[in-house]
Design a protein around this nucleic acid. Structure first.
Lengths: 120, 120
DNA sequence: CGTGGTACTGTGCAATGCGTGGTAGCCACC
DNA sequence: GGTGGCTACCACGCATTGCACAGTACCACG
Protein backbone atom coordinates (compact mmCIF):
# COMPACT_ATOMS: atom_id res chain seq x y z
CA UNK A 1 0.00 0.00 0.00
CA UNK A 2 2.73 2.38 0.90
CA UNK A 3 0.97 5.62 0.31
CA UNK A 4 4.10 7.48 1.12
CA UNK A 5 3.21 10.92 2.28
CA UNK A 6 6.13 12.62 0.68
CA UNK A 7 4.73 14.29 -2.40
CA UNK A 8 6.96 17.15 -1.45
CA UNK A 9 10.25 15.63 -0.43
CA UNK A 10 11.70 17.90 2.20
CA UNK A 11 14.22 19.73 0.16
CA UNK A 12 17.67 20.02 1.43
CA UNK A 13 18.01 23.45 2.85
CA UNK A 14 21.37 22.29 4.04
CA UNK A 15 22.64 22.09 0.49
CA UNK A 16 21.66 25.66 -0.14
CA UNK A 17 23.89 26.75 2.70
CA UNK A 18 26.96 25.43 0.95
CA UNK A 19 29.34 28.23 0.34
CA UNK A 20 26.98 30.76 1.82
CA UNK A 21 27.61 29.98 5.44
CA UNK A 22 31.01 31.57 5.10
CA UNK A 23 29.43 34.81 4.01
CA UNK A 24 26.81 34.71 6.72
CA UNK A 25 29.37 34.06 9.42
CA UNK A 26 31.59 36.82 8.14
CA UNK A 27 28.65 39.19 8.10
CA UNK A 28 27.65 38.34 11.61
CA UNK A 29 31.15 38.63 12.96
CA UNK A 30 31.64 41.89 11.17
CA UNK A 31 28.79 43.28 13.20
CA UNK A 32 30.71 42.61 16.35
CA UNK A 33 33.35 40.22 17.54
CA UNK A 34 31.77 36.96 18.43
CA UNK A 35 32.48 33.53 19.82
CA UNK A 36 31.16 30.36 18.27
CA UNK A 37 28.25 29.68 20.49
CA UNK A 38 27.03 33.21 20.11
CA UNK A 39 27.52 33.33 16.36
CA UNK A 40 25.25 30.32 16.14
CA UNK A 41 22.61 32.14 18.11
CA UNK A 42 22.89 35.25 16.00
CA UNK A 43 22.61 33.31 12.77
CA UNK A 44 19.57 31.49 14.04
CA UNK A 45 18.01 34.71 15.21
CA UNK A 46 18.45 36.12 11.75
CA UNK A 47 16.61 33.34 10.07
CA UNK A 48 19.08 30.51 9.62
CA UNK A 49 17.11 28.64 12.22
CA UNK A 50 18.46 25.20 11.56
CA UNK A 51 22.13 25.83 11.14
CA UNK A 52 24.21 23.24 12.96
CA UNK A 53 26.63 24.36 15.61
CA UNK A 54 29.35 22.11 14.28
CA UNK A 55 29.05 23.79 10.91
CA UNK A 56 29.58 27.18 12.43
CA UNK A 57 32.53 26.15 14.53
CA UNK A 58 34.05 24.55 11.48
CA UNK A 59 33.46 27.61 9.39
CA UNK A 60 34.98 29.89 11.98
CA UNK A 61 38.07 27.73 12.12
CA UNK A 62 38.29 27.66 8.36
CA UNK A 63 37.98 31.39 8.08
CA UNK A 64 40.54 31.81 10.81
CA UNK A 65 42.96 29.50 9.08
CA UNK A 66 42.49 31.30 5.81
CA UNK A 67 43.42 34.53 7.52
CA UNK A 68 40.06 36.24 7.37
CA UNK A 69 39.57 36.28 11.11
CA UNK A 70 41.71 36.82 14.14
CA UNK A 71 41.03 35.19 17.44
CA UNK A 72 41.43 35.73 21.15
CA UNK A 73 40.29 33.84 24.18
CA UNK A 74 38.36 35.43 26.98
CA UNK A 75 37.95 33.46 30.17
CA UNK A 76 34.45 33.79 31.51
CA UNK A 77 33.68 33.96 35.20
CA UNK A 78 30.37 32.29 34.71
CA UNK A 79 31.08 29.38 32.40
CA UNK A 80 33.72 28.01 30.09
CA UNK A 81 36.12 30.25 28.22
CA UNK A 82 35.06 31.95 25.05
CA UNK A 83 37.05 32.01 21.87
CA UNK A 84 36.25 35.27 20.19
CA UNK A 85 36.78 35.87 16.52
CA UNK A 86 37.23 39.27 14.95
CA UNK A 87 37.17 40.20 11.30
CA UNK A 88 40.16 41.84 9.69
CA UNK A 89 41.00 43.42 6.38
CA UNK A 90 41.23 40.15 4.54
CA UNK A 91 37.89 39.09 5.95
CA UNK A 92 36.28 42.37 5.05
CA UNK A 93 37.50 42.11 1.48
CA UNK A 94 36.40 38.52 1.30
CA UNK A 95 33.01 39.46 2.62
CA UNK A 96 32.64 42.28 0.16
CA UNK A 97 33.56 40.10 -2.79
CA UNK A 98 31.48 37.21 -1.60
CA UNK A 99 28.46 39.37 -1.00
CA UNK A 100 28.76 40.74 -4.49
CA UNK A 101 29.12 37.27 -5.95
CA UNK A 102 26.14 36.15 -3.94
CA UNK A 103 23.96 38.91 -5.27
CA UNK A 104 24.93 38.24 -8.84
CA UNK A 105 24.39 34.57 -8.36
CA UNK A 106 21.02 34.90 -6.73
CA UNK A 107 19.89 37.26 -9.44
CA UNK A 108 20.94 34.75 -12.04
CA UNK A 109 18.92 32.06 -10.35
CA UNK A 110 15.94 34.34 -9.99
CA UNK A 111 16.15 34.97 -13.70
CA UNK A 112 16.25 31.30 -14.50
CA UNK A 113 13.20 30.70 -12.35
CA UNK A 114 11.40 33.73 -13.73
CA UNK A 115 12.05 32.74 -17.31
CA UNK A 116 10.48 29.47 -16.45
CA UNK A 117 7.36 31.03 -15.05
CA UNK A 118 6.90 33.24 -18.05
CA UNK A 119 7.02 30.28 -20.34
CA UNK A 120 4.84 28.19 -18.12
CA UNK B 1 57.42 40.86 1.78
CA UNK B 2 54.97 38.69 0.01
CA UNK B 3 52.49 41.22 -1.16
CA UNK B 4 50.33 38.43 -2.46
CA UNK B 5 48.08 39.74 -5.15
CA UNK B 6 45.13 37.70 -4.09
CA UNK B 7 43.27 40.11 -1.91
CA UNK B 8 40.18 38.68 -3.52
CA UNK B 9 40.49 34.94 -3.59
CA UNK B 10 38.25 33.72 -6.36
CA UNK B 11 35.31 32.58 -4.39
CA UNK B 12 33.79 29.27 -5.11
CA UNK B 13 30.82 29.92 -7.29
CA UNK B 14 30.61 26.19 -7.59
CA UNK B 15 29.71 25.86 -3.95
CA UNK B 16 26.85 28.27 -4.38
CA UNK B 17 25.39 26.00 -7.00
CA UNK B 18 24.96 23.20 -4.52
CA UNK B 19 21.35 22.29 -4.27
CA UNK B 20 20.36 25.02 -6.69
CA UNK B 21 21.38 23.29 -9.86
CA UNK B 22 18.48 20.93 -9.39
CA UNK B 23 16.08 23.82 -9.39
CA UNK B 24 17.70 25.46 -12.36
CA UNK B 25 17.63 22.28 -14.39
CA UNK B 26 14.03 21.65 -13.49
CA UNK B 27 13.13 25.18 -14.48
CA UNK B 28 14.87 24.89 -17.81
CA UNK B 29 13.35 21.56 -18.60
CA UNK B 30 9.96 22.79 -17.61
CA UNK B 31 10.24 25.36 -20.36
CA UNK B 32 10.54 22.62 -22.88
CA UNK B 33 11.74 19.06 -23.04
CA UNK B 34 15.47 19.02 -23.35
CA UNK B 35 18.45 16.76 -23.71
CA UNK B 36 21.59 17.12 -21.66
CA UNK B 37 23.79 18.90 -24.08
CA UNK B 38 21.09 21.41 -24.79
CA UNK B 39 20.17 21.96 -21.15
CA UNK B 40 23.78 22.89 -20.57
CA UNK B 41 23.58 25.45 -23.31
CA UNK B 42 20.35 26.89 -22.02
CA UNK B 43 21.67 27.20 -18.49
CA UNK B 44 24.78 28.93 -19.73
CA UNK B 45 22.73 31.24 -21.90
CA UNK B 46 20.75 32.23 -18.86
CA UNK B 47 23.74 33.24 -16.85
CA UNK B 48 25.15 30.09 -15.33
CA UNK B 49 28.05 30.49 -17.65
CA UNK B 50 30.46 28.17 -15.97
CA UNK B 51 28.31 25.22 -15.15
CA UNK B 52 30.05 21.96 -15.92
CA UNK B 53 28.46 19.59 -18.35
CA UNK B 54 29.08 16.60 -16.13
CA UNK B 55 27.18 18.33 -13.35
CA UNK B 56 24.16 18.79 -15.54
CA UNK B 57 24.16 15.26 -16.85
CA UNK B 58 24.49 14.02 -13.31
CA UNK B 59 21.67 16.21 -12.12
CA UNK B 60 19.40 15.07 -14.92
CA UNK B 61 20.07 11.47 -14.05
CA UNK B 62 19.44 12.15 -10.38
CA UNK B 63 16.19 13.91 -11.05
CA UNK B 64 15.16 11.11 -13.37
CA UNK B 65 15.95 8.49 -10.76
CA UNK B 66 14.02 10.38 -8.15
CA UNK B 67 11.02 10.36 -10.45
CA UNK B 68 10.86 14.05 -11.24
CA UNK B 69 11.63 13.60 -14.91
CA UNK B 70 10.73 11.14 -17.60
CA UNK B 71 13.00 10.33 -20.46
CA UNK B 72 12.91 9.26 -24.07
CA UNK B 73 15.58 8.80 -26.65
CA UNK B 74 15.43 10.43 -30.01
CA UNK B 75 17.89 9.22 -32.62
CA UNK B 76 19.31 12.12 -34.52
CA UNK B 77 20.02 11.89 -38.21
CA UNK B 78 22.88 14.29 -37.87
CA UNK B 79 24.85 13.18 -34.85
CA UNK B 80 24.57 10.94 -31.84
CA UNK B 81 21.23 10.10 -30.28
CA UNK B 82 19.62 12.52 -27.88
CA UNK B 83 18.21 11.57 -24.53
CA UNK B 84 15.37 13.92 -23.88
CA UNK B 85 14.02 14.61 -20.45
CA UNK B 86 10.54 15.87 -19.68
CA UNK B 87 9.16 17.17 -16.43
CA UNK B 88 6.17 15.48 -14.81
CA UNK B 89 3.89 16.16 -11.89
CA UNK B 90 6.45 15.16 -9.29
CA UNK B 91 8.98 17.39 -10.94
CA UNK B 92 6.60 20.29 -11.11
CA UNK B 93 5.77 19.97 -7.44
CA UNK B 94 9.41 19.64 -6.59
CA UNK B 95 10.20 22.72 -8.60
CA UNK B 96 7.43 24.70 -6.98
CA UNK B 97 8.55 23.76 -3.49
CA UNK B 98 12.19 24.24 -4.26
CA UNK B 99 11.62 27.61 -5.84
CA UNK B 100 9.74 28.73 -2.79
CA UNK B 101 12.44 27.44 -0.49
CA UNK B 102 15.03 29.18 -2.61
CA UNK B 103 13.25 32.50 -2.37
CA UNK B 104 12.90 32.25 1.37
CA UNK B 105 16.48 31.23 1.72
CA UNK B 106 17.86 33.96 -0.46
CA UNK B 107 15.81 36.52 1.38
CA UNK B 108 17.20 35.28 4.64
CA UNK B 109 20.72 35.63 3.37
CA UNK B 110 20.00 39.07 1.99
CA UNK B 111 18.78 40.04 5.43
CA UNK B 112 21.88 38.74 7.11
CA UNK B 113 24.04 40.70 4.72
CA UNK B 114 21.89 43.80 4.98
CA UNK B 115 21.92 43.73 8.76
CA UNK B 116 25.64 43.68 8.47
CA UNK B 117 25.79 46.70 6.27
CA UNK B 118 23.53 48.70 8.50
CA UNK B 119 25.72 48.02 11.44
CA UNK B 120 28.86 48.66 9.49
C1' DC C 1 41.96 9.70 -42.36
C1' DG C 2 42.35 13.39 -39.12
C1' DT C 3 39.89 17.24 -37.05
C1' DG C 4 36.17 19.16 -34.83
C1' DG C 5 31.61 19.58 -33.07
C1' DT C 6 27.80 16.94 -30.97
C1' DA C 7 26.15 13.92 -27.24
C1' DC C 8 26.38 10.85 -23.40
C1' DT C 9 28.65 8.12 -19.55
C1' DG C 10 31.72 6.60 -15.60
C1' DT C 11 35.27 7.36 -12.13
C1' DG C 12 37.35 9.66 -8.64
C1' DC C 13 38.12 13.97 -6.15
C1' DA C 14 37.19 17.91 -3.07
C1' DA C 15 34.43 20.94 -0.51
C1' DT C 16 31.29 21.47 3.06
C1' DG C 17 27.26 21.04 6.18
C1' DC C 18 25.69 17.93 9.73
C1' DG C 19 24.95 14.28 13.37
C1' DT C 20 26.98 12.32 17.18
C1' DG C 21 29.59 12.06 20.95
C1' DG C 22 33.10 13.77 24.01
C1' DT C 23 35.31 17.27 27.27
C1' DA C 24 34.76 20.90 30.53
C1' DG C 25 33.15 24.61 33.59
C1' DC C 26 29.48 26.47 36.14
C1' DC C 27 24.95 26.53 38.60
C1' DA C 28 20.63 25.03 40.74
C1' DC C 29 17.94 21.71 42.80
C1' DC C 30 16.82 17.77 45.56
C1' DG D 1 27.03 14.86 46.87
C1' DG D 2 24.87 13.53 42.82
C1' DT D 3 22.08 14.76 38.91
C1' DG D 4 20.62 17.43 35.35
C1' DG D 5 21.05 21.44 32.51
C1' DC D 6 23.17 25.28 30.24
C1' DT D 7 27.27 27.17 28.23
C1' DA D 8 31.23 26.42 25.14
C1' DC D 9 34.26 24.02 22.25
C1' DC D 10 36.16 20.20 19.46
C1' DA D 11 36.93 15.74 16.57
C1' DC D 12 35.29 12.06 13.74
C1' DG D 13 32.91 10.22 10.09
C1' DC D 14 29.12 10.51 6.73
C1' DA D 15 26.35 12.13 2.72
C1' DT D 16 25.60 15.18 -0.89
C1' DT D 17 26.99 17.24 -4.87
C1' DG D 18 29.55 19.88 -8.42
C1' DC D 19 33.51 19.14 -11.32
C1' DA D 20 37.64 17.61 -14.00
C1' DC D 21 39.02 14.10 -16.82
C1' DA D 22 38.83 10.35 -19.74
C1' DG D 23 36.38 7.44 -22.72
C1' DT D 24 32.84 6.16 -26.32
C1' DA D 25 30.27 7.14 -30.38
C1' DC D 26 28.35 9.43 -34.40
C1' DC D 27 28.72 12.53 -38.20
C1' DA D 28 30.65 15.95 -41.67
C1' DC D 29 34.22 18.23 -43.99
C1' DG D 30 38.62 18.64 -46.15
Amino acid sequence: MQCVVATSPALDTSQLLKGVLDIAVLAVVRDEDGYGYDVVRRLRARGLSDVGDASVYGTLRRLYQSGALTSYVVPSESGPHRKYYAINRVGRDLLANSAKAWREFSETIDNVLAADEEAA
